[in-house]
Amino acid sequence: MTSLPEKTDRKLGLVIDLDTCVGCHACVISCKGWNTENYGAPLADTDAYGADPSGTFLNRVHSYEVQPESGPAQLVHFPKSCLHCEDAPCVTVCPTGASYKRVEDGIVLVNESDCIGCGLCAWACPYGAREMDPTAGVMKKCTLCVDRIYNENLPEEDREPACVRTCPAGARHFGDFADPESDVSKLTAERGGMDLMPEQGTKPVNKYLPPRDRDIDVLAPLLEPVAEDSKGFLGWLDKTLSKVGGA
């Protein structure tokens, strides 16, 4: 059903920490690995070893340079996967009912056996979170690893999304945003978690934590020179060299 639920019991999603992400792309690879072997059609690669390789991914990492008015530019690595929006435009445009948002946990999924591959849902998503698989002819998107998080065959510590589990920097967190006491809710509140493109009205569930300010330089005071005028041999050398250099 492509009507959106009025309200979902839980709001599962991710917090992505732009401060700690080091841009290693490990989440990209673990996501592709898990999702190509498990739920749904595999994620195709075309011309993988040729001149024009291209592939389907559910998670990608951009890098941006932010130039403040003064001071050095900052590099921000920016992972992006489906944000499991509350007002998901990708769901309501779907003519077949293949795209849907689950009432129990708010995960946005595609039922691949109903998908006709019209591509309209990818048009409707402002974030580029959906990709049409060229081989299977159906729409692929992040499943929030629905086949891991509830999977009792996995050890408990693995019952979280593959990207979260694999991130070496701890830049991705998974949890329930409907519960104000959950880790993800607290993190979002503490660090000013933000929505991407709020003006698009999608009400994303996933939140992004902005990079911390870099203006506190802890080491600088400790590295100040302690003695301005050196004495003895070094003092003589300093003066002589300054004279020779004309300074």
Partner: peptide, 18 residues
């Protein structure tokens, strides 16, 4: 607005994901 980084400075795409 797409990156949420606009209030920190001018945002430029530095490197695409692929």
């Amino acid at each position: 607005s797409a990156t949420g980084l606009g209030d920190r400075g001018t945002v430029r795409s530095f490197e695409p994901p692929h």
